[in-house]
Amino acid sequence: MRSPTETETDDNLPIVIVGGGFAGLFAALHLRDLHSGPIILIDQTWCFVFKPLLYELLSSEVKLELICPRYDRLLHNTGITFVLGTVEAIDLDQKQVKLNGLTYSYRYLVLALGSTTSYFGIPGAKEHALSFRTGYDVFALGQHLRNRLQIATQTEDMEERRAMLTVAIG
């Protein structure tokens, strides 16, 4: 059992959330209404990615800022602190997260680390596919498609042209 001083000290410690995807960002926004203490959101990138609309970024229907808004803008006036960095270590016994040479003590820790691209065991997919998870992925795919189109328009062999313009989506 903790002594009253330990409990009072814990009340002042932040909730630390690692991962700023849908789960992390929405956990932070929901918890700010339930927790009177500080909340810290940590992510490796400056921007949240609204993945359901990445295709609109590829088709140039919307601007990057709408699909990938910066955390500092999203969290402005929310009381949630954003920290850019990669977690180097988590000490569960000491209730500390270490990153960027700093240590953050926490009352509660939320790990919302997201997912990785799955290739579903399809041979060659990992080596030859382009992922579609970030703004950078969208621009890489767009550049790749434009390059293929440009090469195809300069190719007279119809079979080769068709192969260059064939795209598989998984």
Rank of each mutant, 00 (worst) to 15 (best):
L74W: 05
T45L: 06
V138L: 07
Q94N: 14
C68W: 07
T7K: 13
S3R: 12
G20A: 05
T134S: 08
S118H: 10
P52C: 01
P4F: 07
I80T: 00
G79P: 08
E159C: 08
E61Q: 15
A28S: 10
I15Q: 05
H30N: 14
F139W: 12
L13R: 08
I80V: 09
T78L: 08
T116P: 01
A152Q: 08
V87K: 01
T9N: 10
L58I: 00
L57M: 00
K63R: 15
N12T: 11
I39R: 03
I40H: 07
K51D: 09
V138M: 07
A89P: 11
I122W: 13
D72E: 14
L29C: 03
I42C: 02
L29M: 10
A163H: 10
R73N: 13
S60Q: 14
D93F: 12
N77G: 10
S105H: 13
T166P: 02
Y136T: 14
L29D: 04
L102Y: 12
E65M: 12
R146K: 09
S131G: 04
I39K: 03
D11C: 13
P52A: 07
K63C: 11
N147V: 05
G124W: 13
D137L: 03
L41K: 09
G142D: 08
Q96H: 10
R133G: 06
T155S: 00
V87W: 01
R32H: 08
K126S: 14
F132S: 02
D137H: 06
A28R: 01
I90C: 04
T86K: 11
T103W: 05
V87Y: 00
E56H: 10
D137G: 04
Y55Q: 09
I151W: 01
S105W: 05
H35M: 12
C68T: 13
D10P: 04
C47Q: 08
Q150N: 14
Y119C: 00
L34T: 09
Y71K: 06
Y108K: 05
T134G: 00
E88C: 06
L92D: 03
V62E: 05
N100D: 07
D137W: 01
I122T: 15
C68L: 09
Q154S: 09
Q96F: 07
L66D: 15
R161T: 06
P52K: 02
Q96R: 13
L149S: 08
Y106Q: 04
A129T: 03
Y119I: 05
K95H: 12
C68R: 03
T103E: 00
V83W: 00
N147Y: 11
L13H: 06
S118A: 12
C68S: 11
L25A: 00
S60C: 12
R70N: 14
T86P: 03
F139K: 07
Y104W: 11
L130S: 12
I17D: 00
L41V: 03
R2M: 06
D33A: 14
L109H: 04
P52F: 07
P4Q: 03
A152C: 10
R107K: 10
L66R: 15
T5D: 14
F26I: 08
P123T: 06
S131A: 08
E61F: 14
M158T: 15
T81F: 08
T166Y: 02
V83F: 00
Y55F: 07
A112P: 02
N100T: 08
D10F: 11
R73T: 14
A125E: 05
T117I: 06
K51Y: 02
D157L: 08
V83Y: 03
